[in-house]
Write a protein that binds this DNA or RNA. Structure first.
Lengths: 121, 121
DNA sequence: ATCGACAATTTACACGTGTAAACATTAATT
DNA sequence: AATTAATGTTTACACGTGTAAATTGTCGAT
């Protein structure tokens, strides 16, 4: 089963640094999302069921560590969107943003650099 | 409220050609998705509630037309992913696919062309 | 005017999600 | 040992989604 959006917010915390306790996770994500303690606990349990994180005992509490990597998660999400909307190809996606004038100077510069690097291989 | 994935499959049919009757939509999308008549009817009604399509009477049936454009839908979906996973910037997304070796020859060629065109403006 | 066919609208139901309270367990403190 | 504080586990509930059956409405043919 897929990691939901709220669950992903918890994963983001763990991807930044792990292992972490529920309390630490709450401290980092609670204020921003307006979440109570119970909410984070639930999300952690669902992530455990989904095998997206693991927990190891540390005294009276647990420390959580990601099992699903950010790379993998990002790949799945990106591929999903690409397949659904752009026939699985990257160029049309970029073209879309280009048409919407959503490419920043920085984006363009970075894309140029990227293509140049691909040349050198 | 957002157009869901199943609903989007119905929208795709209407984006290809409209207006269309429920029966026509079913004929086009039913087999591929394995959907019964009732399923398509439900999805159409939800799309009506969401103001994503409109219906005009044609004899004893209705003909449906998109109100939400594919452009707009694609923009929303893409922006959502970009903001959630790539800090709102396009270049990191492309870099991600590049690292995963998911850029086809064709993609690369098209991206080159795109950047060249941006130059000429 | 009634019946039948067809199409739309309503209702249904299981499951995931966002959100959290209630309850249980465990370790520390009195 | 009993109580309390901290933390984890279970239960809850409303809402959206995927899927479709049941019901209602309507036009055309007897």
């Amino acid at each position: 089963m897929a990691v939901s959006e709220a669950e992903a917010a918890v994963m983001e915390v763990l991807w930044r640094a792990s292992p972490r306790s529920a309390e630490e996770i709450l401290a980092e994500v609670g204020p921003a999302q307006g979440w109570q303690e119970g909410t984070v606990k639930s999300l952690l349990n669902r992530l455990l069921k989904k095998k997206a994180v693991k927990a190891e005992k540390d005294g009276r509490r647990y420390l959580y560590t990601p099992l699903l990597s950010r790379e993998k998660y990002v790949s799945q999400e990106s591929k999903g969107l690409l397949d659904r909307l752009f026939d699985g190809r990257v160029a049309p996606l970029v073209a879309h943003f280009s048409e919407q004038r959503k490419l920043s100077k920085k984006d363009i510069a970075e894309l140029r650099k990227l293509l140049k690097e691909l040349d050198d291989e």
